[in-house]
Amino acid sequence: MEVRTIKVFTTVDNINLHTQVVDMSMTYGQQFGPTYLDGADVTKIKPHNSHEGKTFYVLPNDDTLRVEAFEYYHTTDPSFLGRYMSALNHTKKWKYPQVNGLTSIKWADNNCYLATALLTLQQIELKFNPPALQDAYYRARAGEAANFCALILAYCNKTVGELGDVRETMSYLFQHANLDSCKRVLNVVCKTCGQQQTTLKGVEAVMYMGTLSYEQFKKGVQIPCTCGKQATKYLVQQESPFVMMSAPPAQYELKHGTFTCASEYTGNYQCGHYKHITSKETLYCIDGALLTKSSEYKGPITDVFYKENSYTTTIK
């Protein structure tokens, strides 16, 4: 009895394709271990004539594949690729409408935090270190965002349907971005203890939790000093293409032309909904596939993004 075979390709990165001759009487799992086709788990399936010449994702289970996976995804987590594939199996079914010149995501599976993050990423200057993220990001900007969303979920250790947080998501993504040249110098002034300067680099240099107003941050924000008295913390120097200011959701007025974009969060910790506000020729609110415009805006804002380049204080 002759062994019926077909020729397929296996890959971990969709760049390096490895030619395989597979036995049609055995499952993919018996031949390769966990195997995925377009995100779908085909591990328990036997090869079919229609699979001839198709590319299958496999887990990096030998040295060659491990090197290829690390170079593309910059992670050695053995569960990463499987999590990416199972997320992709959902995100490829989502709709990605162009809204006001940006790629958004039609609401499904509690994905409003991903839509808000995706919209924000198209408006701030950011370059990702893992080629996987950078490639998928370019495709997302062009309207094909399924891979990018699935990668975000995998890097953030999230599953489809789980509630997510924009600030946490951005923080994970910033860790995989090139923020080497970003720098922030802060000064804390206390009447009792004097003053202390701190220099922050990388992710810490672009994120701040405690106030939404970048102007206020430049002037000074009140913080408790270690001595128990009130101290003032203010920005001395900022070198970065953008800054992200966050605070627990509270009524906040966004003035046209003073910011790049913002995240609105309605609801409580267990259950809520994100919308995205962007400042173009007027203010726009993007909620999944829905767009509304207004000249002014007041609502429960939790993150505001500002364009920056270089700032030095005039406070002496």
Rank of each mutant, 00 (worst) to 15 (best):
K7N: 10
E308M: 12
L88T: 04
T103F: 09
G220C: 02
M245K: 00
T64A: 13
F56P: 04
A69C: 14
G210D: 00
Y84H: 05
N129I: 08
T103V: 12
A154M: 03
Y137L: 12
R141V: 11
D109W: 03
D303K: 00
G161H: 04
G143M: 04
T103E: 02
L88C: 05
I105M: 04
S240F: 00
Q238T: 02
H48T: 13
R139T: 11
E239C: 11
E204N: 09
I286R: 02
F242D: 00
L17S: 07
S310T: 13
M26H: 12
V3Y: 13
A250W: 05
E2D: 14
M26I: 13
S104C: 12
L212C: 08
C225N: 00
Y252V: 13
L254S: 00
C285Q: 12
T198S: 12
T192G: 12
L179H: 05
N309H: 12
L81I: 14
H48R: 13
A115W: 01
C285L: 11
T302N: 02
K280P: 00
H176R: 11
C261G: 00
C271P: 03
L121P: 03
N111A: 05
T314P: 09
H176V: 07
L235G: 01
N187M: 15
I277Y: 02
V42Q: 12
T75L: 07
K293Q: 15
V304P: 01
C149D: 04
A136G: 09
S171T: 13
C190H: 01
T278P: 00
H18G: 05
L212G: 02
M209R: 15
T169L: 08
P34H: 10
S246A: 02
I152P: 00
T11Y: 06
W107A: 05
A145V: 03
K127R: 13
L254M: 05
A205L: 00
M244F: 02
K307Y: 09
T169N: 03
I286T: 05
K44T: 14
H74P: 05
T5I: 10
I105G: 05
D77E: 12
L118R: 04
A87C: 09
E162S: 08
N49S: 13
N89H: 14
T27Y: 09
K316P: 15
Q238Y: 01
C271K: 09
Q197N: 10
Y137C: 07
K93D: 13
Q197A: 07
K92I: 11
A146P: 05
H48K: 15
E281I: 02
A142K: 15
H273V: 01
L200R: 07
C285G: 04
N61S: 14
F70I: 08
Y306K: 04
T232N: 06
T64S: 12
A231M: 02
Q122E: 04
Q238E: 00
M85P: 04
H74L: 15
K54Y: 15
E296L: 12
S25Y: 09
Q134H: 11
P249G: 00
G143A: 04
G288P: 02
K95H: 14
A108L: 05
E264F: 01
I105H: 04
K275P: 00
A69Y: 10
S25Q: 15
I277W: 13
F305E: 00
F128S: 03
K229W: 09
H273C: 03
V185D: 04
H273L: 02
S171D: 05
K95L: 14
F148E: 00
A146Q: 09
G257W: 01
T5A: 13
D23E: 12
K7L: 12
M245D: 01
A262V: 00
I15R: 11
Q175I: 06
S279Q: 06
V12M: 09
T266K: 07
I6S: 06
L179G: 02
W94Y: 04
Y57A: 07
P60G: 07
L290M: 13
T55A: 12
Y36T: 05
E281Y: 00
Q197E: 12
A289D: 14
T19R: 12
S279V: 06
D135A: 09
M245N: 03
T314S: 12
R167Q: 00
L291S: 15
A231E: 00
V42G: 05
F242T: 01
N187Y: 06
T266G: 10
Y73P: 04
V22L: 12
K191D: 11
T76V: 14
A115Q: 10
L37R: 14
G39D: 09
Y284S: 10
S86R: 14
I15C: 10
I15S: 09
Y36P: 02
G299Y: 00
T258R: 09
Y214R: 02
Q31H: 10
V160T: 03
R4N: 14
L59M: 14
T43V: 07
Y73N: 02
Q195W: 09
H273A: 00
K95A: 13
I124G: 04
E264A: 12
K255N: 08
F70C: 10
T120M: 09
K275V: 14
K54R: 14
G164T: 04
D62Q: 08
N147A: 10
T75Y: 06
P224V: 15
S279F: 01
K191A: 15
V12E: 07
L126T: 05
L114T: 03
K293G: 09
K298Y: 15
